[in-house]
Design a protein around this nucleic acid. Structure first.
Lengths: 105, 105
DNA sequence: TTATCAAATCAAGAAATTTTGATTTGAGGT
DNA sequence: ACCTCAAATCAAAATTTCTTGATTTGATAA
């Protein structure tokens, strides 16, 4: 149960940091290699790697290794799942009549 | 520009914490007052207040004051806006194929 | 093999977030 | 006025996240 919330939170961590939002904007333009992201973000390599790991573990970004390079891209499936999850967790439950079942003290 | 990312990040901060996800799940059942949330979450009053502030500032939750009580509920409009934003920031831009050519010596 | 480069990982410190008892605010009720 | 209660705010500590130089890993080339 707590694991479920932890897993859900992990997905949205991708979007709650300014640098990761900027990286995602760069990736919207198409697949991009780490060195270009590093350059565009004006960030040390280890810092970029830290954020890319969070983005990948959220399922929103996919990494493709090609020789010694890694190319990153937005995962349409990951994005779709995130949107479905967001809809679920904010949708009011179907209750017949909004009568509170709790007894007034 | 940095302000934009900051504002976007603020919205998703509502969903990147386990306790806030649990609060949202409680609110999916309908409008709930702070004291009941406090009880259900088994959390000190000041802690709940801290999280409710983040949820309200994200626009996902609305508070309604009634006498000395405050009732919280999920905002359908805030939820809709969050979903639209999520779609925007993960949608690939319409461009020609622009593959990275890092492997070029 | 050795050298080189790209990226991940490590580790220690910096910065931000979260916790929680104490206090304050603000709206009734007496 | 006073008292009480609900909720917000404060403040200090605890915890988590983030930064970044240094190191390691892993692939390629000479």
């Amino acid at each position: 149960m707590a694991d479920l919330y932890e897993q859900q939170a992990k997905i949205f961590k991708a979007f709650c940091d300014e640098r990761r939002l900027r990286i995602l904007e760069l990736l919207r333009g198409g697949e991009t290699c780490a060195c270009k992201l590093c350059d565009a973000m004006d960030m040390p390599q280890s810092s970029l790697s830290y954020h890319m790991k969070i983005l990948c573990e959220s399922g929103i970004v996919l990494g493709r290794e090609e020789g010694k390079w890694t190319h990153y891209r937005i995962s349409p499936e990951g994005s779709r799942k995130a949107m479905e999850l967001l809809r679920e967790i904010t949708q009011l439950q179907e209750t017949e009549e909004s009568s509170c079942r709790c007894q007034k003290p």
